[in-house]
């Protein structure tokens, strides 16, 4: 079965991103297909590679990146939400005259249409948020 996941909250403050990660991992373990993981609202903060948690804590960003790498996940960050919160890839940096980028590996920035497409194409869509 084909699933899409929506993550509406950032890492560390709210449990949503943790729950979404464990759910996505369980989906893959059961042999389901993940059509897309869409990061929206503060959820875009899951995509900054500048995150540096203490060593005895989980690295939420790296965890997503690794999962994407291993399973070819399509992890999409909402462009408008990302711009508001300073999540930047090379294209965005060029377009908006920013001097650096911070998008973590495995994520890509795109529009809200990707969320609707995720709802249309997947058999199931699950929202994690506050």
């Amino acid at each position: 079965m084909k699933f899409s996941i929506v993550v509406n909250e950032g890492p560390y403050t709210h449990q949503a991103s943790d729950s979404a990660y464990h759910f996505t991992k369980a989906l893959l373990a059961k042999g389901h297909e993940v059509f897309r993981v869409f990061f929206y609202h503060d959820g875009v903060n899951n995509a900054t590679r500048l995150t540096t948690p203490p060593q005895d804590d989980r690295n939420i960003v790296n965890r997503w990146s690794k999962l994407a790498q291993g399973s070819e996940l399509d992890m999409v960050v909402c462009v408008a939400a990302a711009q508001r919160r300073g999540i930047v890839d090379e294209g965005e940096a060029k377009r908006n005259g920013k001097d650096s980028t911070n998008l973590a590996p495995g994520f890509r920035i795109s529009g809200l249409g990707q969320l609707i497409e995720a709802g249309i194409q997947a058999d199931r869509i699950v929202v994690f948020g506050d």
């Binding site: 929206y40 609202h41 408008a80 939400a81 529009g111 809200l112 249409g113 969320l115 609707i116 497409e117 709802g119 249309i120």
Partner: peptide, 12 residues
């Protein structure tokens, strides 16, 4: 944000 998404969904 909900309104934004509704408008996009309508465009689809």
């Amino acid at each position: 944000e909900s309104l934004e998404v509704v408008l996009i969904a309508a465009a689809f």
